[in-house]
Computed example of a mutant assay.
Amino acid sequence: MISNEPFMNKQKEIYFTGNSPEAKRTNRAIWKFSKVDNNILIVGDTGTGKEFTARQIHALTSRKNRPFVVLNCSAIGYTLDRDDIFGHESEQTGTIQRTIGLIEKSNHGTLFLDHINETPLDYQFELLQLIRENKFRRIGGSENIALDIRIISSTDVDMEKSIESGGFRKDLYYLLKSLTIGLPSLRERKQDIPELFIQFLKMHCTANEREIPAVPAEIFESILEYDWKGNIRELKNCVENLVMMSPEGELSTEFLPFEIKRHPLDFLEIKNLKGVISEVETYLIKKALGKYAGNQVKAARLLGIPEATLRFKMKKYAIPKD
């Protein structure tokens, strides 16, 4: 994936949405790290915005009009091979055939190594040499190609443990983490959730030419209580699903995912179950009778119980007939 497009919010010096201390700390790091050309390691859980942060840094640097190239290290050896990464060169019928790889495409720009911890060991040595020497060769080629790139890497695991287990080279690790940004999880910056929710809501409605609806308080209550293990990505998906499933111009808690939806009885305190049942039955019976002006036949039908059962419960809970 290649992009030359700057990836910044329109708000001045706000690159990572939110006013929490964690968001402000991340914004300061983005700003400061964009002023130097060191390699950066971004550490954070899945969905915290590692590629987004890398793009923000790139957009603030002198390389912003140069390519931003993503190399998904978890795909190496599967959907990506050496030719894809380093390019290929061969001679056929007197002419030289060249394929340009991801590394060469990123020259003079930024190379983003996503999931760096999943890089196979044999490729790690080649990356090490490339970074140390600032040059590489296409597969099958005979000439060295000079490199001028900034490398930003990302991981969602403890790299020290990967080094201890022999899964990652220590020397490569320290070349990649000249500077480090640790991204907070969404549960660590819950005060930013409403602002992020509104941002995704506006983005999705605008992109799909839909009216931007008001957000019911019940939705904010639900999303603030949820732990968001999938972080910002999960929140974004939740907003998109909510908009698409709700009627035009509205948002309904009915379409929140089950695990996020706040239960309507969450307000109840934990106490004796018999007492809770009595409170709920009393409340519902009074509400049904009120709806039908004391008509017990209609109230019993609404509640789904025989009329005799309704009268028994009214007597039990001392509920007046009118």
Rank of each mutant, 00 (worst) to 15 (best):
I14K: 13
Y15V: 10
Y15S: 06
F16C: 04
T17V: 13
T17N: 06
S20F: 08
P21D: 12
P21I: 08
P21H: 08
E22S: 14
A23P: 10
A23G: 05
K24F: 03
T26W: 03
N27W: 08
R28V: 11
R28T: 13
R28D: 14
A29I: 00
I30N: 11
V36C: 12
N38L: 14
N38S: 15
N39G: 04
I40V: 13
L41Q: 08
V43P: 00
G44T: 09
D45H: 09
T46D: 00
T46K: 00
G47F: 06
G47R: 06
G47M: 06
T48K: 01
G49W: 01
E51P: 03
F52V: 14
T53E: 04
T53A: 05
I57G: 01
H58C: 04
T61R: 12
R63E: 01
K64I: 05
K64F: 10
K64C: 13
R66C: 10
V69D: 09
V69N: 10
S74K: 03
S74P: 01
A75W: 00
A75N: 09
I76S: 04
G77V: 01
Y78W: 02
T79G: 07
D83V: 09
D83Q: 11
I85G: 02
F86H: 10
E89L: 14
S90P: 00
S90T: 13
S90L: 13
S90Q: 12
E91R: 15
Q92F: 15
T93M: 07
G94T: 04
T95N: 13
Q97D: 12
Q97Y: 12
R98C: 02
R98G: 03
T99W: 02
I100L: 10
G101Y: 08
G101N: 10
L102T: 09
I103Y: 04
E104C: 03
E104Q: 14
K105C: 05
K105N: 09
S106T: 02
N107E: 05
N107Y: 06
H108F: 14
G109I: 01
T110S: 02
L111Q: 01
L111V: 04
F112M: 09
F112L: 12
L113D: 02
